[in-house]
């Protein structure tokens, strides 16, 4: 009876098995099996500013990279440390305002403001988020969502830091190529840096914190410390993105605390595939240009946007990257059982 049954089998490609260990690379074919996808990604992203037609689309690529940095941070926090962060706007705002103040009040050049804003902003974000790090559950998400709202209202109500007008006259980058390639290379550095980090020892601890924080505590490790380190890494990326954004716009205002910066990274992670780090970048590469293309539909674009998102969640909740990786590494065939 069962001999008439078939099932679809999914097995690793031979070349995947052979190239799993780095020492087993025997031929150009195997070498390229490993390197071509990575090279396509690196060269593709590096080529993007050149192939884009016109200033407008080049700007879009920069914005894509800004969102990609946030999305990488979100993916890292959510899938490797177990902290669901809605704080994209918080990181962007903190980093952006610090860079703007340093530039406009103290006259520091972008070369200095961006690193300072990155480190200082990340430290401030981590400090402010420290109280909710020992907690498990939804609290971290709520707190990270509330901070940007609070900060925006404080700036508006007290009329500090330029109030509703914002801080104007921030220096721009030397040229548009500098700004684009800064954003693009930063995304690539963070991307491959984080992929490496999550496989080191501290990355293992991060994942352990996500899986079972009590077991980590029982092993004599302070989970709040490790969570703080992870938040510092993610917020540093967000603050750097914010600082770049301020120098691109030559302006810092309360729209830096806009919810877009919190929501789009999440959407990009869903579309790209959570837990892959690369996925969110791809998600941003798809989502941000789409939202630009739909700009002529006005606020209706939110509808298209939501439909895309819902479609992905319902039909392909694994995300593009997970799906693609599986197709690349495995093949399917029917077998009789």
């Amino acid at each position: 009876m069962s001999s008439t049954h078939r099932r679809k089998e999914r097995i690793d490609r031979g070349i995947k098995v052979r190239t799993d260990g780095l020492y087993a690379l025997m031929s150009w074919r195997e070498l390229s099996y490993l390197t071509v996808p990575r090279l396509v990604l690196i060269l593709g992203i590096l080529a993007l500013p050149i192939v884009m037609p016109g200033m407008y689309w080049q700007k879009v690529i920069t914005i894509v990279c800004i969102y990609a940095m946030l999305a990488i941070g979100f993916d890292f926090l959510a899938h490797y440390v177990g902290l669901v962060s809605l704080g994209g706007a918080f990181f962007i705002g903190t980093g952006g305002y610090i860079a703007a103040i340093l530039n406009s009040s103290y006259g520091l050049p972008p070369l200095l403001t961006i690193p300072i804003a990155t480190i200082l902003g990340a430290a401030i974000c981590t400090l402010l988020l420290l109280p909710c790090l020992p907690l498990r559950g939804v609290y971290f998400a709520i707190v990270t969502l509330m901070y940007p709202l609070v900060l925006a209202r404080i700036i508006e109500a007290l009329d500090v830091l330029g109030g509703t007008d914002g801080i104007m006259g921030v220096d721009s980058f030397a040229s548009s190529w500098v700004e684009q390639y800064l954003a693009v290379t930063m995304v690539l550095i963070f991307l491959f840096g984080l992929r490496r980090l999550v496989n080191t020892d501290i990355g293992l601890v991060f994942r352990a914190v996500k899986d079972n924080d009590q077991a980590v505590r029982a092993s004599g490790m302070n989970i709040s410390y490790y969570k703080a380190v992870a938040v510092f890494i993610a917020s540093a990326m967000g603050c750097l993105a914010g600082a770049c954004l301020v120098h691109i716009y030559m302006w810092a205002g309360i729209s830096l605390f806009a919810l877009d910066f919190s929501i789009i990274p999440i959407a990009a992670t869903v579309i790209g595939g959570g837990g892959t780090i690369v996925g969110p970048v791809l998600g941003c590469l798809i989502l941000v240009p789409i939202s630009e293309l739909l700009r002529e539909f006005g606020t209706l674009r939110i509808v298209f946007y939501s439909l895309i998102l819902v479609g992905f969640i319902v039909f392909r909740s694994e995300g593009i990257m997970v799906f693609g990786e599986r197709k690349y590494h495995q093949f399917q065939r029917w077998v009789r059982v």
């Binding site: 009876m1 069962s2 049954h5 099932r7 679809k8 999914r10 392909r316 909740s317 694994e318 995300g319 997970v322 799906f323 599986r326 059982v337």
Partner: peptide, 13 residues
Amino acid sequence: AMAGGERITVLGE
């Protein structure tokens, strides 16, 4: 199947 995890096959009656 939805989350793209393991493929589970159930056969028999």
